[in-house]
């Protein structure tokens, strides 16, 4: 028999063999912390992401669009819950995570700090923002932590509807009046670059990337995923007859990919640091909703105590 393996060796062996790590397995502290950070921030993104679209539920142009948008926003709340639960298997609590979000210690996808100003924006968010999220989440189905990977599988099943309803909105606008086409183009103009930013900094500059890749928490790099998104989205924009706001965008025959221009990294840093158009509004809204709901949580507890 071989000599008994250490915890570290067993863990490393599982990662090397592409096996999943499960909650009761030993894992390095750094792996646990890294996962709590990533999964909770992913959860926060789902929940904060409900706000820009949620504001349009009452203003949707038809009853059909209203029910669809309501269902989509409800799904995002569910995604937040799947992810908070996955993070909780690592020994953190909902209260700690919410506290980290509200105090600004934890981040969320900075795309949700941009305003959703028109019905065209609702279409662009479904098409582009959910589209980018899908590219990222498909990759994360292979992440090394079992509960996270399984949450991703569940989420990906629901995301396709989100992207298709968004594209369907765009398609309708683009088949409409000159004003409607202009609205669609304006939405693409404002959401294109923030969507590319969703994949994070270049690989060389990404603070957590290399360790996350080594631990197989991340399976593909930021730049790889961004390229994938661009390649699949350009033909979709062309089909709509819309112009992507990037003069450098062109097909590169040799690479077999689209070349595209550089992201405005200063803007990215500014929005991540909290200075985007809606950062304060998003957190204020979250705090308000959380406080407004306090009496419900209190009442549920009181009811439970009386019936114990």
């Amino acid at each position: 028999m071989s000599p008994a393996l250490s915890h570290e060796e067993i863990f490393a062996g599982r990662i090397a063999a592409d096996e999943r790590i499960e909650p009761k397995d030993w894992m390095p502290e750094g792996y646990r912390r890294n996962l709590i950070r990533q999964i909770s921030q992913h959860a926060h993104s789902e929940v904060i992401g409900m706000q820009p679209e949620g504001a349009w539920i009452t203003r949707a142009p038809s009853l059909k669009r209203k029910t669809v948008l309501l269902a989509k926003v409800q799904d995002e709340g569910g995604h937040g819950l799947y992810l908070y639960s996955a993070a909780e298997t690592l020994g953190t609590s909902r209260e700690e995570m919410i506290q980290a979000l509200q105090s600004g210690r934890a981040k969320y996808a900075s795309i949700f700090n941009y305003p959703c100003m028109s019905w065209g924006d609702v279409g662009a968010i479904g098409w582009l923002v959910d589209g980018a999220a899908i590219v990222n989440q498909i990759s994360l189905q292979q992440t090394s932590y079992g509960p996270y990977a399984r949450a991703m599988v569940r989420i990906c099943k629901e995301e396709s509807f989100h992207q298709r309803q968004g594209y369907d909105i765009m398609l309708n606008l683009c088949r409409g009046s000159g004003e409607q086409i202009a609205m669609a183009q304006d939405a693409l103009d404002r959401w294109w670059w923030p969507s590319l930013m969703m994949f994070g900094p270049h690989d060389a500059e990404s603070a957590h990337s290399s360790r996350s890749m080594a631990w197989k928490i991340k399976r593909q790099s930021n730049d790889e995923l961004r390229q994938k998104f661009v390649d699949q989205t350009v033909p979709q924009a062309e089909f709509l007859g819309l112009r992507i706001p990037d003069p450098k965008l062109q097909w590169n025959e040799e690479r077999g990919h689209y070349d595209f221009g550089e992201i405005d990294w200063e803007e990215f840093a500014r929005v991540v640091a909290g200075d985007g158009p809606c950062n304060a509004e998003r957190i204020d809204h979250h705090v308000r909703a959380h406080e407004d709901g306090a009496w419900v949580r209190k009442a549920m507890l009181a009811y439970e105590e009386r019936h114990r």
Partner: peptide, 19 residues
């Protein structure tokens, strides 16, 4: 009674149907 929760509810042209 909520078929719109399913991806197949949104019929897209073949060229972009792979999303």
């Amino acid at each position: 009674d909520k078929p719109y929760r399913h991806a197949a509810f949104y019929q897209l042209p073949d060229e972009v149907d792979n999303m």
